[in-house]
């Protein structure tokens, strides 16, 4: 079913973005707590978003 493909893809995209942000943001948060810095969280979140969007492109964006 064509419509269900799209619904599936949308939930997967949401899952990838969420887990990318949670994992790398979590790593950044841990580094912040450990090294007493303030910028690793932001770096981690941006890295996670970037990686997740790259993953979405790999899975759904290329022909």
């Amino acid at each position: 079913m064509a419509m269900k493909d799209e619904g599936n893809a949308l939930w997967s995209i949401f899952g990838y973005l969420l887990s990318g942000m949670l994992f790398w943001g979590g790593v950044g948060y841990g580094l912040d707590k450990w090294l007493n810095q303030g910028y690793f969280l932001l770096v981690g979140l941006l890295l996670g978003i970037g990686a997740a969007i790259y993953l979405v492109w790999l899975r759904f964006g290329r022909e």
């Binding site: 949308l10 943001g25 997740a52 969007i53 979405v56 759904f60």
Partner: peptide, 27 residues
């Protein structure tokens, strides 16, 4: 088949901003 990847990537970019806001609101 041409439009679908573009729509999904656009959705991913927009959704990323929403999730970014969600995470920052809690952190």
């Amino acid at each position: 088949s041409v439009l679908q990847p573009i729509a999904f990537l656009g959705f991913a970019l927009a959704e990323a901003l929403a999730l970014f806001g969600l995470v920052l609101a809690f952190v």
